[in-house]
Amino acid sequence: MKKTVTTLADGRELIYYDSRDDVVREAADTRPLDAVSTSSEIRRDPLLGDSVAIASHRQGRIYHPPADECPLCPSREGRQSEIPEADYDVAVFENRFPSLAGDSGRCEVVCFTSDHDASFADLTEERAGLVLEAWTDRTAEFAGLPQVEQVFCFENRGAEIGVTLGHPHGQIYGYPFVTPRTELMLRSMAAHHAKTGGNLFDDVIAREEADGTRIVLATEHWIAFVPYAAHWPYEVHLHPRRRVPDLRDLDEGARTEFPQVYLELLRRFDRIFGPGEPPTPYISAWHQAPFGIPDREDFGLHLELFTIRRTSGKLKFLAGSESGMSVFINDVPPETAAQRLREVASQ
């Protein structure tokens, strides 16, 4: 992997990740851009104890532009984008409309490919591996920022999810606090250890393997299963078999095997609802240990992949119980979801 760091016309950082070492990235961003002005503010909810990012400047962000005006495509004669080069492998840049900025954290955009019409599932294993290296490198960089306590690498795919740009891309958030979802995991982890003396992540995986009905796929270095109490209609958790706190600690075997495993999961998601169906909308989210917490090594890095589509032509909406009280109601039994995800395996 070759990494090239440069800046955009308004001073934001841009990083190219290339598979070949002989690639030269010298194209300059000559757009007449004003300096980025953000109004991100973190406010604490006194009743729930969680944090909300107030980011009014995001109201003006680009929304579903036509393909020939996509800001994530490579630049071409007569039209410059966020990426000055005429082509690229993987590119990462600071978000022009960040939810978190300055003392409130950092947000970056990760472009998986220069092909506007592709999806992550269309990538080669080599390119998927390069994305993993980019995620890992960015996690390491964020770890050195004093305002960042937790790194979140994720992808939203599909207009139903709320994606505003159709180009295949993800994002990385560097939160200045530990997120509420992670706080709950840490609390459960501590309670489980106090009660059993064991590690929660290890014991969950062991239980799923012993039961077997919710296993989606299992390899030498990775295991994927639908969780026992899945919140979403089709939800898969992917864990490395050797527990590590974040992406930086994955061993070579897990890194080598990840592209094959992850691409297979994404391709199965697109086959859940049968031929002729539009691509399955999904969220893919890496859960990494926050920095500076006690017993950080006990946290289990894992990826959670889920869709809001519950059946053909119907979405799972977060209505009264889910949005009002955070109590999920799942229409698809986890065992049924796992069986379907096994049925649509690549031949």
Rank of each mutant, 00 (worst) to 15 (best):
K3M: 14
K3S: 12
S19F: 01
S19E: 09
R20F: 09
D22N: 12
R31T: 11
P32C: 05
S37F: 05
D45K: 06
G49F: 04
D50I: 14
A53V: 13
H57T: 08
G60T: 11
A67F: 05
E69T: 02
E69G: 11
C73H: 00
Q80D: 08
Q80L: 10
E85P: 11
Y88I: 01
D89K: 01
A91P: 04
F93A: 12
F93D: 08
S99V: 14
S99C: 14
C107A: 12
E108D: 15
E108A: 10
C111W: 00
R127M: 08
A128S: 12
L132M: 13
L132E: 09
A134H: 06
A140Q: 13
F142A: 13
G144P: 04
L145T: 03
V148I: 15
V148P: 00
V148K: 02
E155L: 02
N156R: 07
A159I: 09
F177N: 03
T179D: 11
T179Q: 10
R181A: 13
T182Q: 06
L184R: 14
L184S: 11
A190Q: 11
H192F: 12
K195W: 08
F201T: 13
I205H: 03
E209Y: 10
A210E: 15
I215V: 15
I215Y: 01
I215Q: 02
H221Y: 12
H221G: 08
A224W: 01
V226S: 04
Y228Q: 12
Y228A: 13
A229Q: 14
A230W: 03
A230V: 11
R242T: 15
R242L: 13
P245W: 00
R248E: 12
L250E: 08
L250V: 10
D251R: 10
T256W: 04
T256G: 13
Q260W: 03
R267I: 03
R271Q: 07
R271K: 08
G276H: 08
P281K: 03
S284T: 07
F291Q: 07
D295H: 13
E297L: 07
D298Y: 08
L303R: 10
L305K: 00
I308T: 09
T311A: 09
G313H: 05
L318A: 03
L318W: 00
F328W: 14
N330E: 12
V332G: 06
P333M: 10
P334E: 11
E335Q: 13
A338T: 03
A338M: 01
R342P: 05
S346T: 14
